[in-house]
């Protein structure tokens, strides 16, 4: 990433804020840890963040519910305020940007013009192809805005299951002809951060990875970063031992549920869902759906809305067999 001599770097900014070099390196270490990188990467992260002009980031909202933006706002490491004031220049983000109307669109177009080839595009929401009038911003259809904005992007990050896989708008019968970002953009590096919404720190950690290493992380067959989607929730679930012992809650609030037994027979989709809920957990590690007593909905998987009732068991446990995961480097059974 290029150093812009006229603009202070992240560590200079932090120093002015009274953040010591030691504190800065601790921040870098927390990113490295979150990304499951080796400690050797800490100096590299520190170096990248120290030298970077804040890269321009444009966030395009299409057929969305703003849950992905809300999740982004919940990130505690890196904090969302640290990210948007110190590490990136978030030049277009409908939910929190001050500018509106023509001035908002000018902000987007100015970034496209002045940062061509350098800026990052984030997308939440699916794109309707059934009719251009199904979703517009400033009178422009979503598909046109995506094409126009992605054309000169360095990379595209699809945030949430709608942008990554079509999500709920695409659920049967897909009334608006909704598609994923990767159905429209085929000539740019794209990474999918799926989930409904994705885990807060997973969104920011992937952005931090890109800022640090100048490229997108390694991904699975669904273009999701392996660091967070490499293992099934089932394989990392703290209730897994109960599954192995066939101790299943039979109803909500029964003695098994109260004892923390496995929710498999209440419809848990953990065995077929790849996400970091059981390891990173939600909202600063507070909990995750299974820990709070509800079966996993499978929200980070393509077409999970049409994959069977949320309370319908996947299959009798006798049929649960360990299979190597296609394409994954030695991940657990699927």
């Amino acid at each position: 990433m290029k150093k812009n001599k006229e603009q202070p770097s992240v560590d200079e900014v932090l120093a002015q804020h009274g953040v010591s070099r030691r504190g800065f390196l601790k921040f870098c270490a927390s990113i490295a840890s979150l990304m499951a990188l080796s400690p050797d990467a800490v100096p590299q992260i520190a170096s990248a963040l120290s030298n970077a002009r804040r890269p321009s980031v444009l966030w395009l909202p299409f057929q969305e519910c703003t849950g992905c933006t809300e999740s982004f706002l919940r990130s505690h490491t890196p904090t969302v305020e640290g990210l948007i004031f110190n590490s990136i220049s978030l030049d277009y983000q409908h939910t929190i940007m001050a500018a509106a109307g023509d001035q908002a669109e000018e902000a987007r177009r100015e970034a496209i013009r002045s940062q061509a080839g350098e800026y990052l595009v984030l997308v939440d929401g699916s794109i309707p192809l059934g009719n251009a009038g199904f979703s517009t911003i400033g009178g422009q259809s979503n598909v046109d805005m995506l094409r126009e904005t992605a054309a000169d992007a360095a990379a595209v990050i699809a945030i949430g299951t709608c942008a990554a896989f079509g999500g709920i708008p695409k659920a049967n019968p897909n009334p608006t002809g909704a598609v994923a970002v990767s159905d429209i953009i085929t000539d740019k590096p794209i990474i999918n951060i799926s989930g409904c919404p994705p885990i807060p720190v997973v969104i920011t950690a992937v952005i931090a990875y890109y800022l640090t290493f100048g490229r997108l992380p390694d991904v699975d067959e669904n273009s999701r970063p392996l660091a967070f989607y490499g293992n099934s929730i089932h394989d990392r679930c703290y209730r897994r031992p109960f599954f192995e012992r066939r101790q299943f809650a039979q109803s909500f609030d029964d003695e098994g549920a109260k004892a923390g037994w496995c929710l498999f027979e209440l419809g848990c989709k953990g065995p077929v869902t790849y996400n970091a809920c059981a390891t990173v957990k939600w909202n600063e590690g507070t909990s995750y759906p299974i820990e709070a007593g509800h079966p996993c909905l499978g929200c980070s998987e393509p077409d999970f809305w049409d994959a069977g009732g949320f309370y319908q068991g996947l299959f009798p446990w006798e049929f649960y067999t360990a299979r190597p995961r296609p394409g994954g480097p030695g991940q657990g059974p699927r």
Binding site: E70, E81, P200, N283, T286, A292
Partner: peptide, 22 residues
């Protein structure tokens, strides 16, 4: 901004996550 990510933890405790608790 800091405060809001703390208070939603009531959703996480009772519903497993925020946004979109169960």
């Amino acid at each position: 901004l800091q405060w809001q990510r703390e208070v939603v933890k009531i959703h996480t405790i009772f519903g497993g996550k925020n946004p979109h608790p169960n």
